[in-house]
Amino acid sequence: MSMLLEVSGVSVSFDGFKAINNLSFNIGSAELRAIIGPNGAGKTTFMDIVTGKTRPDEGRVIWGEKSVSLLKMSEAQIAQSGVGRKFQKPTVFEDQTVQENLLVALKKPRGWLAVLGYRPTVEDLGRVDALAEEIGLTDQLSRLAGELSHGQKQWLEIGMLLAQEPRLLLVDEPAAGMTVTERQHTTDILVEAAKTRAVVVVEHDMEFVRRLNCKVTVLHEGSVLAEGSLDHVTANQDVIDVYLGR
């Protein structure tokens, strides 16, 4: 299987504290992966590096079939080349309607001049309707995003990422603060999405990870501690010591 993203030998430190230490990580083009690890294991910093927010001190981040390095690209360029990121807290444009949120996210030319002259076509609006259907917000299209519930905002954000048509989706703790049924729905969205693209989910909640039913990578002190199925890693003594044993 060809690799979509290859992270190798990456290290980064803040004021002497090593947040990521010689981390290596690969993911294929249509794969669902969960990353777990205790607080401070470097999960969020890992996402920061892939999305270009943080520049590593050393190491390589290679992307796609053409094997381009992401390290020299800006956040916007990385996003345009197909990396979508969902933040821990739901971040949607609360002052705008659900429809506007999704329209902004649609995969269209991103330059300001093109955007200035852009007016949505019938297909675009149809695509937005389809996305709303997928994330279960069809009834809410004309509501302001700020008025949505916490779970609906999370879905809207995921919907915006899907509208972007990314090849890699990085999702940070999507289930935090959700009810059981909302979690079920979130799992469905993610599993469905992973059929056509790579999805990386950072999560604390073991039950949620179990339901995703995918390969798991355990991070600890900025590097990979174990990798494999959930049953495999939970049986690993190291993992039990640093994470599960607590």
């Binding site: 999305t51 927010k53 800006s74 956040e75 916007a76 360029q77 996003a79 345009q80 979508g84 990121r85 933040f87 971040t91 949607v92 444009f93 609360e94 002052d95 705008q96 506007e100 329209l103 902004v104 996210a105 991103r110 330059g111 300001w112 955007v115 915006m160 972007q164």
Partner: peptide, 19 residues
């Protein structure tokens, strides 16, 4: 939409691929 997005949440706009 984009500039109001920048006002409310710059990082979101950036990670949506807008410069």
């Amino acid at each position: 939409s984009v500039i109001r997005g920048i006002r409310d949440n710059e990082a979101r706009v950036r990670f949506l691929g807008y410069s």
